[in-house]
Computed example of a mutant assay.
Amino acid sequence: MNDQLTDAKNYFVQYLQTEKNYSSLTISHYVHDIEHFFAFLHREGVAKLSTIEDLHSRLYLVTLHNEQFSRASVSRKISSLRSFFKFLEREEQISANPMSYVLHPKREGRLPHFFYEEEMEQLFLACDGTDPLSLRNKAILELLYATGIRVSECTSIELKDLDLSLSTLLVKGKGRKERYVPFGGFAQDAIAQYLKLGRPELIKEQPHSSLFVNHRGKPLTARGVRHILSTLVEKTALTASIHPHMLRHTFATHLLNNGADLRTVQELLGHAHLSSTQLYTHVTKEHLRKTYNSFHPRA
């Protein structure tokens, strides 16, 4: 990779770390997108920032289409590169942003999948048990459903982040933004049981403060949570495959279905923009439409 392009990328990474305070995972996504564009520029014989033009941006979009990237992936790459060149323009390393006039592809009209309340009951029954792993699994499931937190936020919970007396959780979200989220009695009871009878058996005197641990007593990973949830689904009569974000979708959808206002759900989810939360209003409308068509005699 050309030294000038590498230096520009490293300068941008430093900005993301110090000024934006982004997580290492978010930064790695930016770096991946920028390096993919740089590889395209190399094939096009472009080696200097000053020679990157709007034409290259349009040709890059054609390349992404030919390589069959999804609309979501293309949109993310556009956002990453637009931010990158906007930063370079601010720092006067380039005179114009070559991604300024590139349009995001229309989003695919897929609604987020969620569990119905009856399906959630099946999942809770699947993790009933008094052994340490069952207690842990139930605490994880109850907490994910009760708070709508992301799996990355769940696995980063430390003991000091929990306040069982107030039934609240300090969540460290995207961009290292923190928020307090309440949880209900079912989650409270499950966590208390896990802390009393499950975690001490699993941790085996290993000195760390992570709330959730694996069978060896080490901090649980996001991959571990996915495996736990998939195992729970296999124990039920559910045919749907599960991904951890489905519980986040379920949390938001059930709140809105039961009358919660959109701003409250936005705050609980930790969404920076209301438009991200508004997606769930389409889910609830679809749910209402299906219910109407199923039960109204003249639907």
Rank of each mutant, 00 (worst) to 15 (best):
V181H: 11
S241H: 15
G224D: 06
D131Y: 13
E234C: 10
N214V: 12
A240L: 15
L238S: 11
P200D: 01
H287I: 05
F295D: 01
M1D: 09
E91T: 11
T284D: 04
T63W: 02
V151K: 08
Q4P: 07
L269E: 06
H113Y: 08
L88P: 12
A96Y: 14
V233I: 15
L143F: 10
K218S: 10
S50T: 13
L59S: 15
L5S: 12
Q266M: 02
S210I: 12
D54I: 13
R263N: 05
A126E: 14
R76K: 08
D131Q: 13
Y145F: 08
Q188D: 00
A299G: 05
E35L: 03
P105K: 08
S134C: 03
N258C: 00
T253E: 13
L169H: 11
R226N: 10
E142N: 00
V31Y: 02
H208V: 06
K172E: 11
P207N: 10
E201Y: 08
Y145W: 05
A252P: 05
I203R: 08
T51I: 11
V62T: 15
L64T: 02
A47E: 14
A260G: 09
S57M: 10
G109I: 14
L25S: 09
H208A: 02
G270R: 03
S23G: 10
I149M: 14
V62C: 14
F69S: 06
K77P: 01
V74L: 02
H215I: 13
N258T: 09
F40E: 00
D7I: 13
P182E: 00
R176E: 03
Y180A: 11
L59D: 06
T291E: 09
S57D: 09
A139G: 03
L123P: 07
G109P: 10
N293I: 10
R71A: 12
R176I: 09
S210N: 14
K48M: 05
V151W: 13
Y101C: 04
Q278D: 02
L143R: 03
K235S: 15
A72C: 06
E19A: 09
L64R: 01
K138A: 01
E44Q: 09
H227F: 13
S156A: 10
I242A: 15
P244V: 07
A272K: 06
N293E: 12
N10I: 13
P244G: 07
Y280Q: 03
V13A: 09
K138L: 05
N258E: 06
K235Y: 02
P112Q: 04
D131S: 11
Y101F: 08
K174H: 02
L195H: 07
N21D: 04
I157C: 06
G45I: 09
K48I: 00
H104D: 01
R150Q: 07
Q4A: 09
L247Q: 13
N137A: 03
A39T: 07
L61S: 15
E19R: 04
E201C: 05
K285H: 08
S75D: 01
L220R: 05
Y116A: 01
S275I: 00
H56D: 04
R223F: 01
T231C: 12
F40M: 04
L288G: 09
V74I: 15
L255H: 08
K174N: 00
M246R: 05
I149E: 12
Y101I: 05
R223V: 12
